[in-house]
């Protein structure tokens, strides 16, 4: 058994590029999924039966499907039914955004619902409009409760970006596995891949713990 770790260094540039795409995917998905989640939560709480039903169905559907299946489905179904040919990376973004929006919607809804009803009632009694009560009283408190959950969704998302490798998006996992099959340095490349994910994810997981300690609710 002999190992040749130099293969990791000779392909460092490609791995770096893959890592950049991984970070890019996670950032863009979150930028789509936070507004998406807010819209879903507001629709859910809107009081209109149709809108809240539609939002609930969307949320339940995507929370109850394996992400890898959503990715495959987006890859095969979107071009054939909607007649739009997206690049693999855009397809990956669509699938990730659908998934994370559903989770964020639940997070925001729970955050808003966790603010006692009396607070909104008091704001209304003071003569605020429903929208004002939401914006001035409920949301500022809800954000504090939502932040730690959002942070752990971010960590999951960062890991889940690895799944878009199955539709040949050139992010970290795909790049590492491609180099593995070109060089036959299986152990070295897979270990390097795991190490890079670990090095990026570990501080994030610790940050989530810190956010939870700082903002978490102890009842």
């Amino acid at each position: 058994m002999n190992f040749d770790w130099s293969v990791v260094w000779t392909h460092a540039g490609e791995l770096l590029q893959g890592t950049e795409i991984t970070v890019f995917l996670a950032v863009v998905t979150m930028m789509i999924a936070i507004p998406g989640g807010i819209v879903l939560a507001l629709l859910r709480l809107s009081g209109s039966r149709i809108l809240s039903g539609a939002s609930a169905s969307f949320t339940e559907l995507f929370r109850n499907l394996p992400l890898i299946l959503v990715i495959y489905a987006a890859y095969y179904i979107m071009p054939l039914t909607l007649n739009i040919a997206l690049s693999p990376i855009a397809t990956g973004l669509v699938a990730l955004s659908l998934n994370v929006s559903a989770y964020n919607g639940e997070t925001f809804r729970a955050g808003i619902a966790s603010i006692r009803k009396g607070q909104g009632d008091a704001a209304l009694a003071l003569g605020m409009s429903r929208w004002q009560a939401m914006r001035e009283v409920v949301l500022p408190q809800a954000v504090r409760r939502v932040l730690p959950v959002l942070a752990s969704t971010w960590v999951s998302l960062f890991k889940d970006t690895s799944l878009v490798s199955v539709i040949a998006v050139g992010e970290l996992a795909y790049t590492a596995m491609r180099i593995r099959s070109q060089t036959f340095r299986v152990l070295e490349m897979l270990t390097a891949m795991a190490a890079i994910y670990w090095a990026l994810g570990y501080p994030q997981a610790k940050l989530v713990d810190w956010l939870n300690r700082k903002y978490g609710i102890n009842e």
């Binding site: 960590v155 890991k159 690895s162 490798s165 996992a173 795991a194 994910y197 670990w198 994810g201 997981a205």
Partner: peptide, 9 residues
């Protein structure tokens, strides 16, 4: 560590 490495990996 398990929280920071993807299942796929």
């Amino acid at each position: 560590s398990m929280r920071s490495v993807p299942v796929l990996v």
